[in-house]
């Protein structure tokens, strides 16, 4: 029964991801962006554990999915998520990035709350890994990958305005990158046998969350 509910969850996520491709106008509508902003602020409030609304918290992965998944479908840059500050035509992720990333990091200050409870990518990977008992061991040196990605983001945040770098990463068209699509599919498939592959080996928010969680435990104990 539990496995069936996992299957249903994964299918639901796949359906929502497919539907997201056609929902650009909704994703940049005022209402949706303001809803996400309010949910981010409420999320920080819930993390303080003064008052929690579990029914609302369950909806977080589904509501945020559209905003977080869209850059994988269409982006002006060859590497999505990173260059929103230079983008001529922002999506909802680009619009909210100055608020959402700090909010995710803030929520992670308490037991990586965003990663384990609200993040749609984390939620999907959890459901996927429950479906398959097989596990693939990943060599430890791959743990360096998120550190390299974080350095890459920080460096290129300032360098992107340089024409040569802009020319290299800018696609000059708001379109789907084949490379991004293939890599996303590979990550999706590997998530069945490598738990939280995106969170542990790619996501910079996950990396910062891991570090803050280790520091939090050390400091509190």
């Amino acid at each position: 029964m539990k496995k069936e509910s996992n299957v249903i969850m994964v299918i639901l996520f796949i359906f929502l991801i497919s539907a997201s491709f056609f929902l650009y106008d909704l994703s940049i509508s005022h209402l949706y962006v303001y809803i996400l902003l309010i949910l981010l602020l409420l999320g920080i409030f819930f993390v303080l554990e003064i008052k929690r609304i579990k029914q609302l918290e369950c909806l977080y992965p589904f509501v945020f999915l559209l905003s977080l998944i869209y850059p994988l479908f269409k982006c002006y840059f060859k590497v999505p998520y990173f260059f929103c500050h230079s983008c001529p035509r922002k999506c909802s992720f680009g619009i909210l990035r100055p608020y959402s990333i700090p909010a995710f990091v803030t929520m992670n200050l308490n037991n990586r709350h965003w990663c384990f409870n609200y993040c749609p990518f984390g939620k999907l990977q959890d459901e996927q890994s429950k479906l398959c008992r097989k596990r693939l061991r990943v060599p430890r040196f791959f743990l360096v990958l998120p550190i390299i990605i974080l350095i890459f983001i920080t460096l290129f945040y300032f360098l992107i305005k340089k024409e040569s770098i802009n020319d290299f990463f800018f696609q000059y068209s708001y379109k789907t990158s084949t490379v991004v699509a293939v890599i996303s599919l590979i990550i999706f498939l590997l998530a069945f046998i490598i738990p939280r592959i995106f969170c542990n080996y790619l996501c910079p928010v996950g990396l910062i969350g891991k570090i803050t969680m280790k520091l939090e435990k050390k400091w509190l104990n």
């Binding site: 902003l37 981010l40 602020l41 920080i44 200050l109």
Partner: peptide, 24 residues
């Protein structure tokens, strides 16, 4: 220590809220 941790989280939340209110 827990109080300090929660105060930091609350402070970040307030700063974000004010910033978002101002610009958006």
């Amino acid at each position: 220590k827990e109080f300090i941790k929660k105060a930091i989280i609350a402070g970040c939340g307030v700063a974000l809220a004010v910033n978002a209110l101002d610009s958006m």
